[in-house]
Design a protein around this nucleic acid. Structure first.
Lengths: 192, 192
DNA sequence: ACCGATCCCAACCGTTCAGTTGCATATTCT
DNA sequence: AGAATATGCAACTGAACGGTTGGGATCGGT
Protein backbone atom coordinates (compact mmCIF):
# COMPACT_ATOMS: atom_id res chain seq x y z
CA UNK A 1 0.00 0.00 0.00
CA UNK A 2 1.32 3.41 -0.94
CA UNK A 3 1.84 5.91 1.87
CA UNK A 4 -0.95 8.38 1.54
CA UNK A 5 0.44 10.89 3.96
CA UNK A 6 -1.75 13.67 2.69
CA UNK A 7 -4.80 11.58 3.42
CA UNK A 8 -3.53 10.82 6.94
CA UNK A 9 -2.90 14.51 7.48
CA UNK A 10 -6.38 15.33 6.28
CA UNK A 11 -7.96 12.70 8.53
CA UNK A 12 -6.11 14.09 11.52
CA UNK A 13 -7.14 17.62 10.66
CA UNK A 14 -10.78 16.61 10.33
CA UNK A 15 -10.77 14.59 13.54
CA UNK A 16 -9.02 17.42 15.37
CA UNK A 17 -11.55 19.93 14.04
CA UNK A 18 -14.38 17.87 15.50
CA UNK A 19 -12.62 17.22 18.79
CA UNK A 20 -11.40 20.79 19.37
CA UNK A 21 -14.74 22.22 18.32
CA UNK A 22 -16.53 20.01 20.83
CA UNK A 23 -14.17 20.24 23.77
CA UNK A 24 -11.89 23.21 23.23
CA UNK A 25 -8.12 23.35 23.56
CA UNK A 26 -7.92 22.22 27.18
CA UNK A 27 -10.78 19.73 26.96
CA UNK A 28 -9.68 17.99 23.78
CA UNK A 29 -7.81 14.71 24.18
CA UNK A 30 -4.96 13.85 21.88
CA UNK A 31 -5.76 10.16 22.22
CA UNK A 32 -9.33 10.79 21.13
CA UNK A 33 -8.23 12.75 18.07
CA UNK A 34 -5.96 9.92 17.01
CA UNK A 35 -8.70 7.35 17.59
CA UNK A 36 -11.25 9.42 15.62
CA UNK A 37 -8.80 9.68 12.76
CA UNK A 38 -7.99 5.98 12.95
CA UNK A 39 -4.33 6.92 13.24
CA UNK A 40 -1.70 6.50 15.89
CA UNK A 41 -1.31 9.59 17.99
CA UNK A 42 2.41 9.72 17.44
CA UNK A 43 1.60 10.97 13.93
CA UNK A 44 0.23 14.14 15.46
CA UNK A 45 3.60 15.01 16.92
CA UNK A 46 5.40 14.19 13.68
CA UNK A 47 3.02 16.13 11.47
CA UNK A 48 2.04 19.05 13.60
CA UNK A 49 4.43 19.21 16.53
CA UNK A 50 1.96 19.01 19.36
CA UNK A 51 -1.53 19.66 20.58
CA UNK A 52 -1.37 23.44 20.45
CA UNK A 53 0.15 23.56 16.99
CA UNK A 54 -2.47 21.13 15.78
CA UNK A 55 -5.09 23.50 17.13
CA UNK A 56 -3.53 26.36 15.20
CA UNK A 57 -3.52 24.29 12.03
CA UNK A 58 -7.17 23.42 12.55
CA UNK A 59 -8.20 27.05 12.98
CA UNK A 60 -6.19 28.16 9.99
CA UNK A 61 -7.70 25.41 7.88
CA UNK A 62 -11.24 26.22 8.95
CA UNK A 63 -10.75 29.92 8.35
CA UNK A 64 -9.56 29.27 4.86
CA UNK A 65 -12.41 26.92 4.10
CA UNK A 66 -15.21 29.18 5.31
CA UNK A 67 -13.78 32.14 3.44
CA UNK A 68 -13.94 30.11 0.25
CA UNK A 69 -17.43 28.79 1.00
CA UNK A 70 -19.13 32.05 1.91
CA UNK A 71 -18.03 34.87 -0.37
CA UNK A 72 -19.26 38.42 -0.21
CA UNK A 73 -20.84 39.11 -3.58
CA UNK A 74 -22.77 42.06 -4.93
CA UNK A 75 -22.90 45.64 -3.79
CA UNK A 76 -24.74 47.82 -1.32
CA UNK A 77 -26.18 47.21 2.15
CA UNK A 78 -28.45 44.42 0.85
CA UNK A 79 -25.42 42.45 -0.28
CA UNK A 80 -23.95 42.81 3.19
CA UNK A 81 -27.21 41.54 4.67
CA UNK A 82 -27.09 38.58 2.34
CA UNK A 83 -23.54 37.87 3.40
CA UNK A 84 -24.49 37.93 7.09
CA UNK A 85 -27.46 35.64 6.46
CA UNK A 86 -25.32 33.21 4.47
CA UNK A 87 -22.71 33.25 7.23
CA UNK A 88 -25.33 32.44 9.82
CA UNK A 89 -26.67 29.61 7.66
CA UNK A 90 -23.20 28.21 7.37
CA UNK A 91 -22.73 28.41 11.15
CA UNK A 92 -26.06 26.73 11.86
CA UNK A 93 -25.07 23.98 9.46
CA UNK A 94 -21.43 23.65 10.48
CA UNK A 95 -20.72 25.47 13.72
CA UNK A 96 -17.17 24.14 14.06
CA UNK A 97 -15.25 27.22 13.00
CA UNK A 98 -17.35 29.63 15.04
CA UNK A 99 -16.79 27.50 18.11
CA UNK A 100 -13.08 27.18 17.38
CA UNK A 101 -12.74 30.94 17.09
CA UNK A 102 -14.43 31.34 20.45
CA UNK A 103 -12.30 28.69 22.15
CA UNK A 104 -9.26 30.40 20.70
CA UNK A 105 -10.27 33.88 21.78
CA UNK A 106 -11.11 32.72 25.28
CA UNK A 107 -8.02 30.61 25.78
CA UNK A 108 -5.45 32.76 24.04
CA UNK A 109 -6.72 36.31 24.24
CA UNK A 110 -5.92 38.91 21.64
CA UNK A 111 -2.47 37.59 20.75
CA UNK A 112 -3.17 34.99 18.14
CA UNK A 113 -0.41 33.01 16.58
CA UNK A 114 0.28 33.23 12.88
CA UNK A 115 -0.63 36.87 12.88
CA UNK A 116 0.71 37.58 9.45
CA UNK A 117 -1.42 35.29 7.32
CA UNK A 118 -4.35 35.86 9.61
CA UNK A 119 -4.06 39.59 9.34
CA UNK A 120 -3.78 39.41 5.57
CA UNK A 121 -6.84 37.21 5.54
CA UNK A 122 -8.83 39.78 7.52
CA UNK A 123 -7.63 42.66 5.42
CA UNK A 124 -8.99 40.74 2.45
CA UNK A 125 -12.41 40.59 4.04
CA UNK A 126 -12.31 44.27 4.89
CA UNK A 127 -11.32 45.04 1.33
CA UNK A 128 -14.27 43.00 0.06
CA UNK A 129 -16.54 44.94 2.38
CA UNK A 130 -15.19 48.25 1.13
CA UNK A 131 -15.75 47.10 -2.43
CA UNK A 132 -19.37 46.32 -1.58
CA UNK A 133 -19.83 49.64 0.20
CA UNK A 134 -17.85 52.22 -1.77
CA UNK A 135 -16.78 55.22 0.25
CA UNK A 136 -16.89 53.52 3.63
CA UNK A 137 -13.91 54.19 5.91
CA UNK A 138 -11.58 51.40 6.96
CA UNK A 139 -12.54 51.89 10.60
CA UNK A 140 -16.24 51.64 9.80
CA UNK A 141 -15.63 48.53 7.74
CA UNK A 142 -13.81 46.98 10.68
CA UNK A 143 -16.67 47.77 13.03
CA UNK A 144 -19.15 46.37 10.57
CA UNK A 145 -17.22 43.17 10.07
CA UNK A 146 -16.84 42.68 13.81
CA UNK A 147 -20.56 43.23 14.17
CA UNK A 148 -21.43 40.66 11.54
CA UNK A 149 -19.06 37.99 12.80
CA UNK A 150 -20.05 38.56 16.40
CA UNK A 151 -23.74 38.38 15.61
CA UNK A 152 -23.47 35.22 13.55
CA UNK A 153 -20.95 33.39 15.72
CA UNK A 154 -23.10 34.16 18.74
CA UNK A 155 -25.56 31.52 17.61
CA UNK A 156 -22.93 28.81 18.03
CA UNK A 157 -21.21 30.23 21.10
CA UNK A 158 -24.29 31.01 23.20
CA UNK A 159 -26.69 28.19 22.36
CA UNK A 160 -28.20 28.46 25.82
CA UNK A 161 -29.18 32.08 25.14
CA UNK A 162 -30.32 31.36 21.61
CA UNK A 163 -32.54 28.61 22.94
CA UNK A 164 -34.03 30.78 25.66
CA UNK A 165 -34.58 33.93 23.65
CA UNK A 166 -35.54 32.61 20.26
CA UNK A 167 -36.62 29.04 20.99
CA UNK A 168 -33.66 27.91 18.91
CA UNK A 169 -35.33 28.91 15.65
CA UNK A 170 -32.57 29.70 13.15
CA UNK A 171 -34.97 31.03 10.51
CA UNK A 172 -36.26 33.83 12.67
CA UNK A 173 -32.71 34.61 13.72
CA UNK A 174 -31.45 34.73 10.16
CA UNK A 175 -33.97 37.38 9.19
CA UNK A 176 -33.17 39.43 12.28
CA UNK A 177 -29.46 39.20 11.58
CA UNK A 178 -29.97 40.08 7.93
CA UNK A 179 -31.91 43.23 8.79
CA UNK A 180 -29.38 44.20 11.45
CA UNK A 181 -26.55 43.79 8.96
CA UNK A 182 -28.35 45.81 6.30
CA UNK A 183 -29.02 48.54 8.84
CA UNK A 184 -25.45 48.53 10.10
CA UNK A 185 -24.11 48.68 6.56
CA UNK A 186 -26.40 51.55 5.59
CA UNK A 187 -25.45 53.35 8.76
CA UNK A 188 -21.73 52.88 8.13
CA UNK A 189 -22.20 54.12 4.58
CA UNK A 190 -24.16 57.17 5.64
CA UNK A 191 -21.43 58.16 8.08
CA UNK A 192 -18.87 58.24 5.30
CA UNK B 1 -11.43 32.28 65.90
CA UNK B 2 -15.08 32.01 64.94
CA UNK B 3 -15.95 29.92 61.86
CA UNK B 4 -16.60 32.40 59.12
CA UNK B 5 -17.94 29.89 56.66
CA UNK B 6 -19.70 32.50 54.61
CA UNK B 7 -16.44 34.31 54.08
CA UNK B 8 -14.72 31.09 53.06
CA UNK B 9 -17.54 30.38 50.63
CA UNK B 10 -17.25 33.86 49.21
CA UNK B 11 -13.50 33.56 48.81
CA UNK B 12 -13.91 30.28 46.97
CA UNK B 13 -16.58 31.73 44.73
CA UNK B 14 -14.39 34.72 43.86
CA UNK B 15 -11.32 32.61 43.23
CA UNK B 16 -13.35 30.19 41.13
CA UNK B 17 -14.81 33.06 39.12
CA UNK B 18 -11.33 34.25 38.23
CA UNK B 19 -10.02 30.77 37.48
CA UNK B 20 -12.99 29.58 35.42
CA UNK B 21 -13.15 32.86 33.56
CA UNK B 22 -9.49 32.57 32.62
CA UNK B 23 -9.28 28.88 31.81
CA UNK B 24 -12.79 27.56 31.32
CA UNK B 25 -14.35 24.46 32.80
CA UNK B 26 -11.84 21.97 31.43
CA UNK B 27 -8.81 24.21 31.82
CA UNK B 28 -9.49 25.36 35.36
CA UNK B 29 -7.57 23.56 38.10
CA UNK B 30 -9.23 22.82 41.39
CA UNK B 31 -5.91 23.11 43.19
CA UNK B 32 -5.39 26.58 41.76
CA UNK B 33 -8.82 27.72 42.87
CA UNK B 34 -8.12 26.56 46.40
CA UNK B 35 -4.71 28.23 46.40
CA UNK B 36 -6.15 31.52 45.06
CA UNK B 37 -8.77 31.45 47.78
CA UNK B 38 -6.19 30.59 50.43
CA UNK B 39 -8.30 27.61 51.37
CA UNK B 40 -7.78 23.87 51.23
CA UNK B 41 -9.37 22.35 48.19
CA UNK B 42 -11.26 19.81 50.24
CA UNK B 43 -13.58 22.69 51.20
CA UNK B 44 -14.73 22.89 47.59
CA UNK B 45 -16.13 19.39 47.74
CA UNK B 46 -17.79 20.03 51.08
CA UNK B 47 -19.35 23.31 50.04
CA UNK B 48 -20.16 22.81 46.40
CA UNK B 49 -19.91 19.10 45.66
CA UNK B 50 -17.34 19.22 42.88
CA UNK B 51 -15.77 21.16 40.07
CA UNK B 52 -18.81 21.26 37.80
CA UNK B 53 -21.21 22.27 40.54
CA UNK B 54 -18.80 25.00 41.59
CA UNK B 55 -18.85 26.23 38.01
CA UNK B 56 -22.65 26.36 38.08
CA UNK B 57 -22.57 28.30 41.33
CA UNK B 58 -20.08 30.75 39.84
CA UNK B 59 -22.21 31.39 36.76
CA UNK B 60 -25.37 31.81 38.79
CA UNK B 61 -23.60 34.22 41.12
CA UNK B 62 -22.17 36.28 38.28
CA UNK B 63 -25.50 36.42 36.48
CA UNK B 64 -27.18 37.73 39.57
CA UNK B 65 -24.52 40.32 40.18
CA UNK B 66 -24.44 41.77 36.67
CA UNK B 67 -28.23 41.98 36.55
CA UNK B 68 -28.12 44.06 39.70
CA UNK B 69 -25.24 46.23 38.46
CA UNK B 70 -26.56 47.05 34.99
CA UNK B 71 -30.29 47.80 35.08
CA UNK B 72 -32.40 48.76 32.10
CA UNK B 73 -33.85 52.15 32.93
CA UNK B 74 -35.92 54.61 30.94
CA UNK B 75 -38.05 54.09 27.88
CA UNK B 76 -37.74 53.97 24.12
CA UNK B 77 -34.99 52.84 21.75
CA UNK B 78 -32.51 55.32 23.24
CA UNK B 79 -32.86 53.65 26.62
CA UNK B 80 -32.09 50.30 25.01
CA UNK B 81 -29.03 51.83 23.39
CA UNK B 82 -27.91 53.12 26.77
CA UNK B 83 -28.41 49.70 28.26
CA UNK B 84 -26.29 48.07 25.56
CA UNK B 85 -23.55 50.67 25.99
CA UNK B 86 -23.57 50.21 29.77
CA UNK B 87 -23.41 46.44 29.32
CA UNK B 88 -20.40 46.77 27.04
CA UNK B 89 -18.70 49.08 29.51
CA UNK B 90 -19.26 46.56 32.23
CA UNK B 91 -17.82 43.79 30.07
CA UNK B 92 -14.76 45.83 29.15
CA UNK B 93 -14.24 46.54 32.82
CA UNK B 94 -15.07 43.08 34.15
CA UNK B 95 -15.24 40.49 31.39
CA UNK B 96 -15.59 37.52 33.74
CA UNK B 97 -19.29 36.83 33.29
CA UNK B 98 -19.25 37.21 29.52
CA UNK B 99 -16.40 34.73 29.31
CA UNK B 100 -18.11 32.35 31.72
CA UNK B 101 -21.27 32.39 29.63
CA UNK B 102 -19.24 31.56 26.55
CA UNK B 103 -17.32 28.74 28.24
CA UNK B 104 -20.63 27.40 29.46
CA UNK B 105 -22.34 27.60 26.10
CA UNK B 106 -19.42 25.97 24.34
CA UNK B 107 -18.91 23.20 26.85
CA UNK B 108 -22.49 22.41 27.73
CA UNK B 109 -24.56 23.39 24.73
CA UNK B 110 -28.15 24.51 25.00
CA UNK B 111 -29.05 22.40 28.00
CA UNK B 112 -27.96 24.52 30.93
CA UNK B 113 -28.41 23.30 34.44
CA UNK B 114 -30.63 25.18 36.83
CA UNK B 115 -33.02 26.01 34.05
CA UNK B 116 -35.78 27.20 36.29
CA UNK B 117 -34.11 30.11 38.06
CA UNK B 118 -32.21 30.91 34.93
CA UNK B 119 -35.31 31.00 32.81
CA UNK B 120 -37.10 33.20 35.34
CA UNK B 121 -34.10 35.49 35.32
CA UNK B 122 -34.26 35.84 31.55
CA UNK B 123 -37.98 36.37 31.51
CA UNK B 124 -37.33 39.25 33.89
CA UNK B 125 -34.98 40.86 31.41
CA UNK B 126 -37.45 40.37 28.59
CA UNK B 127 -40.17 41.92 30.71
CA UNK B 128 -37.93 44.90 31.38
CA UNK B 129 -37.33 45.23 27.65
CA UNK B 130 -41.04 45.11 26.91
CA UNK B 131 -41.61 47.78 29.53
CA UNK B 132 -39.04 49.98 27.81
CA UNK B 133 -40.54 49.32 24.38
CA UNK B 134 -44.32 49.16 24.84
CA UNK B 135 -46.10 47.15 22.20
CA UNK B 136 -43.14 44.99 21.21
CA UNK B 137 -43.85 41.28 20.84
CA UNK B 138 -42.24 38.72 23.10
CA UNK B 139 -40.46 37.14 20.15
CA UNK B 140 -39.05 40.48 19.02
CA UNK B 141 -37.93 41.23 22.56
CA UNK B 142 -36.12 37.88 22.66
CA UNK B 143 -34.37 38.59 19.36
CA UNK B 144 -33.40 42.04 20.57
CA UNK B 145 -32.02 40.75 23.85
CA UNK B 146 -30.03 38.05 22.10
CA UNK B 147 -28.67 40.69 19.75
CA UNK B 148 -27.58 42.95 22.58
CA UNK B 149 -25.96 40.24 24.66
CA UNK B 150 -24.25 38.70 21.67
CA UNK B 151 -22.90 42.04 20.50
CA UNK B 152 -21.58 43.05 23.90
CA UNK B 153 -20.22 39.66 24.98
CA UNK B 154 -18.45 39.41 21.65
CA UNK B 155 -15.91 41.92 22.84
CA UNK B 156 -14.76 39.54 25.57
CA UNK B 157 -15.13 36.31 23.62
CA UNK B 158 -13.41 37.34 20.40
CA UNK B 159 -10.61 39.62 21.58
CA UNK B 160 -8.53 38.57 18.60
CA UNK B 161 -11.20 39.87 16.21
CA UNK B 162 -11.83 42.99 18.26
CA UNK B 163 -8.13 43.73 18.16
CA UNK B 164 -7.86 43.19 14.42
CA UNK B 165 -10.98 45.03 13.34
CA UNK B 166 -11.16 47.90 15.79
CA UNK B 167 -7.62 48.13 17.11
CA UNK B 168 -9.03 47.17 20.49
CA UNK B 169 -10.60 50.58 21.02
CA UNK B 170 -13.60 50.09 23.34
CA UNK B 171 -14.85 53.67 22.95
CA UNK B 172 -15.41 53.36 19.23
CA UNK B 173 -17.04 50.00 19.78
CA UNK B 174 -19.36 51.33 22.45
CA UNK B 175 -20.76 53.96 20.12
CA UNK B 176 -21.22 51.44 17.34
CA UNK B 177 -22.97 49.04 19.67
CA UNK B 178 -25.15 51.80 21.05
CA UNK B 179 -26.29 52.82 17.58
CA UNK B 180 -26.88 49.24 16.58
CA UNK B 181 -28.98 48.64 19.67
CA UNK B 182 -31.02 51.79 19.11
CA UNK B 183 -31.61 50.77 15.52
CA UNK B 184 -32.55 47.23 16.47
CA UNK B 185 -34.93 48.48 19.14
CA UNK B 186 -36.59 50.95 16.78
CA UNK B 187 -36.87 48.24 14.16
CA UNK B 188 -38.42 45.79 16.61
CA UNK B 189 -40.84 48.48 17.73
CA UNK B 190 -41.82 49.39 14.21
CA UNK B 191 -42.61 45.76 13.39
CA UNK B 192 -45.13 45.59 16.22
C1' DA C 1 17.80 -6.42 -5.09
C1' DC C 2 19.50 -3.50 -1.94
C1' DC C 3 19.58 0.95 0.85
C1' DG C 4 18.37 5.10 3.09
C1' DA C 5 14.41 7.61 4.18
C1' DT C 6 9.79 7.75 5.55
C1' DC C 7 5.86 6.10 7.89
C1' DC C 8 3.39 3.42 11.31
C1' DC C 9 2.31 1.68 15.88
C1' DA C 10 2.29 -0.63 20.59
C1' DA C 11 4.05 0.10 24.77
C1' DC C 12 5.91 3.06 27.88
C1' DC C 13 7.06 7.39 31.03
C1' DG C 14 6.82 11.15 34.17
C1' DT C 15 3.46 14.38 35.50
C1' DT C 16 -0.78 16.17 36.77
C1' DC C 17 -5.43 15.91 37.80
C1' DA C 18 -10.08 15.46 40.44
C1' DG C 19 -11.46 13.59 44.26
C1' DT C 20 -10.80 11.09 49.21
C1' DT C 21 -9.31 10.02 53.80
C1' DG C 22 -7.75 10.40 58.57
C1' DC C 23 -6.94 13.29 61.99
C1' DA C 24 -6.36 17.65 64.60
C1' DT C 25 -8.75 21.66 66.05
C1' DA C 26 -12.49 24.66 67.05
C1' DT C 27 -17.44 25.37 68.20
C1' DT C 28 -21.89 24.47 70.16
C1' DC C 29 -25.06 22.27 73.20
C1' DT C 30 -26.28 20.70 77.75
C1' DA D 1 -16.66 20.59 81.73
C1' DG D 2 -17.51 17.19 78.46
C1' DA D 3 -19.82 15.02 74.61
C1' DA D 4 -21.25 15.74 69.92
C1' DT D 5 -20.70 18.24 65.84
C1' DA D 6 -18.66 21.08 62.34
C1' DT D 7 -14.47 22.82 60.11
C1' DG D 8 -9.75 22.75 58.76
C1' DC D 9 -5.84 20.66 56.28
C1' DA D 10 -1.80 17.60 54.59
C1' DA D 11 -1.05 13.56 52.49
C1' DC D 12 -2.70 10.16 49.60
C1' DT D 13 -4.81 7.58 45.37
C1' DG D 14 -6.06 5.81 41.06
C1' DA D 15 -6.76 7.29 36.70
C1' DA D 16 -5.82 10.03 32.75
C1' DC D 17 -3.00 13.07 30.30
C1' DG D 18 0.60 14.85 26.79
C1' DG D 19 4.42 13.36 24.92
C1' DT D 20 8.39 9.79 23.69
C1' DT D 21 10.79 5.70 22.15
C1' DG D 22 12.37 1.66 19.66
C1' DG D 23 11.51 -1.38 16.39
C1' DG D 24 9.17 -3.11 12.34
C1' DA D 25 6.95 -2.24 7.70
C1' DT D 26 6.91 0.20 3.19
C1' DC D 27 8.33 3.29 0.08
C1' DG D 28 11.40 5.56 -4.02
C1' DG D 29 15.86 5.60 -6.14
C1' DT D 30 19.49 3.09 -8.35
Amino acid sequence: MAWDTERTRRRLLDAATAEFSEHGLAGARVDRIAARAGVNKERIYQYFGGKEQLFDAVVQDGLFEVAADVPLVGEGPEAVGGYAAALLDRIVDRPELARLMAWEGLARGAEVTGRIERHAHCLDKIAALRRALPGITAAAAGQLLLTIITLTNGWAVFPQLAEMFTGGDPDARRETVRRLAVGAAADALAAA
